[in-house]
């Protein structure tokens, strides 16, 4: 007597194996589709905008005439914005992370702060724009200055920096901390001289990635009222300015076809900017990452 009907088993087995192969193909296709989208995006923008890229494009102000439109004011404006956002966001972010990881007691206030940070990360950027408009632009009377925009952007990326810094601080092994405390160092000395130096690569990587998000953000700047057409460079943080994404938005929404090319060229400049920042983050991560 045969317990196993060989033919039936083979038949059924084949069907299951074929299903497996088909679905593997489907899953692979889906993954490739995502990559294809990125390639297509890059290809389109480079072919559209590369022709307009030149030194003149970098050194001209924007213009009503597409062939004379340049990105100087926006590029310098974005750098100014970074000069405000980087110190503000990093001091606030790292300070919060140190508090939460090293000092905070396990109580309701601490868990409230944690939940709050998680929720803040999910608030749409345009809502931060409304906050900036009311608080910084109007209540603090900063106007549409670099400072007002910088503060708004700092609050926007704060949750990202806090979470990245918390992870970096948490990954510093407890033995280092205990050794330092055991040698008689105070808690603050331990934090400044032992924990922060060990956590700095992680903190910097997270911060640079957060800053590159701030460079590409458009919506909050529009709500604050950052102007588009600026024919001068800002002299200080209280001056009004324009930024790369705002300039690109303006060009992209103009009806003339020629401005599409200018917008694509602007996007290339923005993406090179972001690529540089991301490479710096990767270099820092690879070079200074210590394994304990």
């Amino acid at each position: 007597m045969r317990y196993i009907e060989h033919e039936r088993v083979v038949k059924r087995m084949n069907g299951r194996l074929v299903t497996n192969v088909i679905f593997k193909g489907i899953f692979l296709a889906a993954t490739s589709l995502a990559i294809l989208a990125l390639v297509l995006l890059a290809y389109r923008i480079i072919t559209q905008g590369a022709g307009h890229l030149s030194l003149d494009f970098l050194s001209n102000f924007s213009s009503r005439f597409p062939d004379r439109a340049g990105i100087k004011a926006a590029l310098i404006g974005s750098l100014w914005l970074m000069a405000v956002v980087a110190p503000t966001a990093i001091i606030l972010g790292v300070g919060s992370a140190i508090y939460l990881e090293e000092y905070a007691k396990k109580n309701k206030i601490t868990s409230f702060i944690r939940i709050n940070i998680a929720n803040l990360a999910g608030v749409p950027s345009i809502v931060f724009g409304l906050l900036g408009l009311t608080i910084f632009v109007r209540a603090f009377a900063l106007g549409n200055s670099i400072l007002a925009a910088g503060f708004t952007m700092s609050l926007l990326i704060l949750p990202v920096i806090i979470v990245a810094s918390q992870e970096a601080i948490r990954s510093v092994p407890g033995e280092l901390r205990e050794a330092s405390l055991g040698m008689g160092a105070t808690k603050w000395q331990t934090i400044v001289k032992i924990i922060l130096p060990a956590a700095i690569p992680g903190i910097l990587t997270g911060s640079i990635l957060a800053l590159s998000r701030a460079i590409g953000e458009t919506a909050p700047l529009i709500v604050i009222g950052v102007p588009v057409i600026i024919q001068f460079l800002p002299a200080g943080i209280m001056d009004t300015f324009t930024a790369l994404p705002i300039q690109i938005f303006d060009w992209a929404s103009r009806p003339q076809q020629e401005f599409q090319t200018v917008a694509a060229a602007g996007i290339i400049v923005l993406m090179i900017f972001l690529l540089l920042m991301n490479s710096i983050a990767v270099i820092i991560r690879n070079k200074f990452q210590k394994r304990y």
């Binding site: 923008i45 590409g216 953000e217 992209a252 996007i267």
Partner: peptide, 10 residues
């Protein structure tokens, strides 16, 4: 990490 303005243009 691609800025949304770039997606909008696309």
């Amino acid at each position: 990490g691609v800025p949304t303005i770039v997606y909008g243009f696309f």
